[in-house]
Every structure is written in structure tokens, then in C-alpha cells.
Amino acid sequence: MTEKETLVYRGKIVDLFLEQVLLPNGAKAELEIVRHPGGAAAVAIDAENRVCLLRQYRHAAGGWLWELPAGKLDPGEPPLATAQRELQEEAGLRAARWEPLGKIISSPGVFTEVVHLFLARGLSHVAANAEAHEVFEVHWVAFAEALAQARTGVIVDAKTLAGLFRAERLNWGE
């Protein structure tokens, strides 16, 4: 239970709070909590069992990462709408069929961010509209190869790992 919270920083995407909390065991702790609106990601698999991956530059991660098309929830926007919007903006794709793959919490000790994962099938091409601050390349990778890259550590992004393995569990792409 939060007894006291102090705003330390308000940003464009995240806010940082110091929270004094009472833990379930009765202990008190002061925690640094980064509040994030959450996000959504799409595991887009085409008719040839290829998955759409972005090779994206991430300064905070020190370089290039392989990721699913994904983005931040806009205020009041349902997670599925976010996944649909991001798939179109980043990959220039629209999907006829969507299936939820659950959610992940990337770093529950510090961040409130919840990422909702979706499987997208029945793909068609539309105009992309990437944001200026994003630097990425769109790649189509055989689903089995993407899974191998996830297992061997080539793919390290948490939402991408979870999305690929959950899609595999549903026997999609195999």
C-alpha cells in the first residue's frame, strides 16, 4: 500500500515517483517507480510463415535491436488499436485477423509499463507513416529462423521474445 508519493520528474513519456510503501510483510520501503502508459506489439505473420521484425536503433540499449512493431498507448486508446496503429505506421501493414497473446510487464521492480501482445494475420500492405525520431528497417524473417534467433540470444528485446514464443505456443507459423 502506498503511504506517500512524491513526483520527482514529469516527462513526455514517463513520470518518476518516490513512493513510501507498506509491503505485505509489514516492512516499509521507499521505492523509485517509473510510471509509463503501457504499450502494444504485433506479431505479424504473413502467408509464407514469415514474421515482420524491425531492426531498430535504440540509444538506451547501445545500438540496434530486433523488435516487433510496437508502440506506446495513447491516452484512452485500447491496446488492440495501438497494435493496429503501430503495425501500419512502422511496417505499412494492416491485418484482417487479430488474436490476443496476453501481456508482459518488462521490469516490475521499477516500471509500471504493461505491454499487450497480439498475433496479426491476413496481412495487406498500406502506406507506412513512421515518426521522425524512429530509426529502423523492416525485415521479413522466416518464423522458424526468428524463433532460433530468440533462443540463441540474437533477439534480446523482451516483448519480441514473449510475442514470438507465445505465437509459437499457438502453433502459428510452424
Rank of each mutant, 00 (worst) to 15 (best):
P100K: 05
V110R: 14
P108N: 08
S107A: 12
E99C: 09
V110N: 04
E90V: 06
G102C: 11
R94L: 13
E99P: 03
E99D: 10
S107F: 13
A96E: 15
P100C: 07
G92M: 12
A120Y: 03
V115D: 10
V115L: 13
A96Y: 04
E89I: 03
L87I: 02
L87F: 06
R121D: 04
R94C: 12
I105C: 12
A91S: 10
F111S: 15
G102L: 09
A95Q: 09
F118G: 00
L119W: 01
L117G: 08
S106F: 01
L119H: 02
H116L: 05
F118W: 11
F118K: 02
F111N: 09
A95S: 11
L87N: 01
F111W: 13
E86I: 06
E86Y: 08
V114R: 09
I104N: 10
P100I: 03
I104Y: 09
L119G: 00
L119F: 03
E113G: 13
A120E: 02
V110S: 09
E86Q: 12
I105A: 14
S106E: 11
P108E: 05
G92L: 13
L87H: 03
E99G: 13
L101S: 04
A91Q: 03
L93Y: 15
K103T: 08
A120I: 03
E90S: 05
L93R: 12
P108C: 10
E90D: 11
I104Q: 07
